[in-house]
Computed example of a mutant assay.
Amino acid sequence: MSELARELGVSDPQLYKWRKEFVEFGEGSFPGKGNLKLSLEQEKIYELEKRLKDADLESDLLKKAIGIFSKSGR
């Protein structure tokens, strides 16, 4: 990976980040960048997956907050 990063003129961490994003989103990676064109359906799926991920994070934070506040009220 280090050799490839040098050849592309990017940092190692950036290359790892791109690989992780590609593994996670596949062809939906990097929308709007480069020459990749997503179909309307792919764009909708990408947006819904992003919203679901955000909602899951919100839910986890709220659960943790409820746990913290319920302990402090004892």
Rank of each mutant, 00 (worst) to 15 (best):
M1S: 12
M1V: 10
S2A: 15
E3N: 14
A5V: 02
R6W: 05
R6A: 10
R6Q: 12
E7V: 12
L8F: 01
L8E: 02
L8G: 03
L8P: 00
V10I: 15
V10C: 06
S11N: 06
S11E: 05
D12G: 10
D12R: 15
P13M: 03
P13T: 00
P13E: 00
Q14Y: 12
Q14L: 11
Q14H: 11
L15C: 04
L15T: 05
L15Q: 05
L15W: 01
Y16D: 13
K17L: 10
K17P: 03
K17N: 12
W18N: 07
W18P: 01
W18G: 08
R19G: 04
K20R: 15
K20I: 06
F22M: 12
F22K: 15
V23G: 09
V23Q: 15
E24F: 00
F25N: 12
F25G: 00
F25A: 08
F25Q: 12
F25C: 07
G26D: 11
G26S: 10
G28I: 11
G28D: 13
S29Y: 13
F30Y: 14
F30P: 11
F30I: 10
P31T: 07
P31N: 01
G32S: 07
G32Q: 05
K33W: 00
K33S: 08
G34H: 03
G34M: 07
N35A: 09
N35C: 07
N35D: 12
N35T: 10
L36P: 04
L36R: 15
L36W: 00
L36Y: 05
K37G: 04
K37I: 09
L38E: 01
L38I: 02
L38H: 13
L38N: 04
S39P: 02
S39N: 04
S39E: 04
L40S: 14
L40M: 07
L40F: 05
Q42F: 00
Q42H: 02
Q42D: 03
E43G: 09
K44H: 09
K44C: 05
I45K: 14
I45A: 08
Y46S: 04
Y46R: 12
E47L: 11
E49L: 09
E49I: 00
K50L: 00
K50P: 01
K50T: 01
K50C: 01
R51A: 04
R51T: 03
L52R: 08
L52Q: 06
K53H: 05
D54H: 06
D54A: 11
A55K: 02
A55Y: 06
D56K: 14
L57Q: 07
L57A: 09
L57M: 06
E58L: 06
E58D: 08
S59C: 08
S59P: 02
D60C: 05
D60G: 10
L62P: 03
L62I: 11
K63P: 00
K64P: 02
K64E: 11
A65H: 10
A65F: 06
A65M: 09
A65C: 00
I66T: 03
G67Q: 09
G67A: 03
I68G: 04
I68L: 11
F69R: 15
F69V: 10
S70W: 03
S70Y: 04
K71Q: 06
K71R: 15
K71P: 01
K71S: 12
K71C: 01
S72E: 14
S72T: 08
S72V: 06
S72M: 06
G73R: 15
R74M: 11
R74I: 04
R74V: 05
R74C: 03
